[in-house]
């Protein structure tokens, strides 16, 4: 057991509780997804098809060719660029996901661990799209951005990868801007009421 304390990206920045409008149901519910595995995989040149097959065999997901998700048992693969995916896993926590991917996809993809480098914030609630619209110039209308859809863009001038998981929106931010993002979110959601809960 390590003697070093592990701290999530928003540790000490965000505390559970109600922010902004106090009465009524909160318009937005926010939580930090902690200790999950995050990694990028980039296809080695000329191995795109082999990589797709290997991911299918190892993780039961077909890598999407565009900005969307493919979900296998335990791992979600999100397209972030040509030949590049962002992998998210709760079962393969922290560094374990990148280690697992590197092992199984050896020679087919370059794998890099980002489990410490991102804050993953989950936003849900009736006003989540109205809140995100204040910082994100993307059309989140469900007819356009359905379940599993994903996009890399900026929220309040901060780089963000966003994907939809059911009715929830997960946002991967650079760890270092966690405080600034929280400031933005608190201000953008104040009129609707923001409830911060912790999960996982």
């Amino acid at each position: 057991m390590s003697s070093l304390k592990s701290m999530s990206a928003l540790h000490g920045i965000v505390s559970p509780g109600r922010y902004g409008k106090q009465d009524g149901e909160p318009g937005v519910v926010a939580s930090e997804r902690r200790d999950i595995g995050l990694a990028t995989i980039a296809a080695r040149k000329g191995h795109e098809a082999d990589l797709t097959a290997a991911v299918k065999a190892a993780y039961g997901a077909v890598l999407p060719s565009g900005p969307g998700s493919a979900v296998g048992p335990g791992v979600r693969f999100i397209g972030i660029g040509p030949g590049q995916w962002f992998a998210v896993s709760e079962t393969l926590a922290n560094e374990a996901l990148a280690d697992d991917l590197a092992e199984r996809l050896k020679g087919l993809a370059s794998v890099a661990d980002h489990s410490s480098g991102r804050a993953i914030i989950r936003l849900e609630g009736p006003e989540v799209r109205a809140v995100l619209a204040k910082g994100l110039a993307l059309d989140l209308d469900p007819r356009v951005f359905g379940d599993g859809a994903a996009a890399t863009s900026t929220i309040g001038h901060m780089g963000a990868l966003l994907w939809r998981d059911g009715e929830a929106y997960d946002i991967a931010l650079f760890r270092s801007v966690g405080g600034s993002f929280w400031g933005w979110l608190r201000s953008a959601a104040a009129a609707f009421g923001l409830e911060v809960v912790t999960t996982s």
Partner: peptide, 8 residues
């Protein structure tokens, strides 16, 4: 070290 251990 992975950033989650940085403070530690």
């Amino acid at each position: 070290v992975p950033a989650r251990y940085g403070d530690g």
